[in-house]
């Protein structure tokens, strides 16, 4: 199926152990909410805080992009509203996102939890065990090779 779909080949998203097309778009200053024609939008935390009610009332399906320094209290009220939370990894050696993912899962969030930013094959196994189920790989990564990183180990201690 992938072979017949050249667009899908360009994706850099792995979700639930499958290479998939990304149907979400992240809002930026150049691409504010009223211009976004896509239904699924990812809203950066600052914007979410500033325009919460407007966003909730919009027709869009919402996702939230948060830095790895975010406190649970800043996002807990979004858990029932958003369908996706993306945690940013500024550099792959910055491990704060792992703890934040666990905190969010432990607090009961069950929807998509996506790792974005400096995401490489060799971190996928730990990321998935920390609660992420979606990975937006750095654009230079070979996704077919990367997905194998999810099965580097068949068992774990913790």
């Amino acid at each position: 199926m992938m072979k017949n779909n050249p667009k899908a080949m360009q994706t850099n998203l792995i979700k639930d152990h499958t290479i998939v097309q990304d149907h979400w778009i992240t809002l930026t200053a150049d691409n504010p909410i009223h211009q976004a024609d896509q239904k699924h939008i990812i809203v950066p935390l600052d914007l979410w805080k500033a325009q919460k009610s407007e966003l909730i009332q919009s027709e869009k399906t919402l996702g939230l992009l948060i830095p790895n320094t975010t406190e649970l209290t800043e996002v807990a009220d979004a858990f029932t509203v958003v369908k996706l939370i993306a945690i940013d990894f500024p550099v792959f050696t910055d491990g704060r996102g792992y703890s934040l993912a666990r905190i969010i899962r432990e607090a009961g969030y069950k929807q998509e939890l996506r790792a974005v930013g400096d995401i490489l094959k060799d971190q996928l196994f730990y990321l998935s065990r920390s609660g992420f189920n979606a990975f937006e790989l750095r654009s230079d990564q070979n996704i077919e090779i990367a997905i194998k990183g999810l099965s580097d180990f068949s068992i774990s201690y913790q």
């Binding site: 792959f92 491990g95 792992y98 703890s99 971190q123 730990y126 201690y157």
Partner: peptide, 14 residues
Amino acid sequence: RQWSTFHPEFAYLP
């Protein structure tokens, strides 16, 4: 030792 081996949350500490 077992708990800390490949602990996914703590592989990239400060």
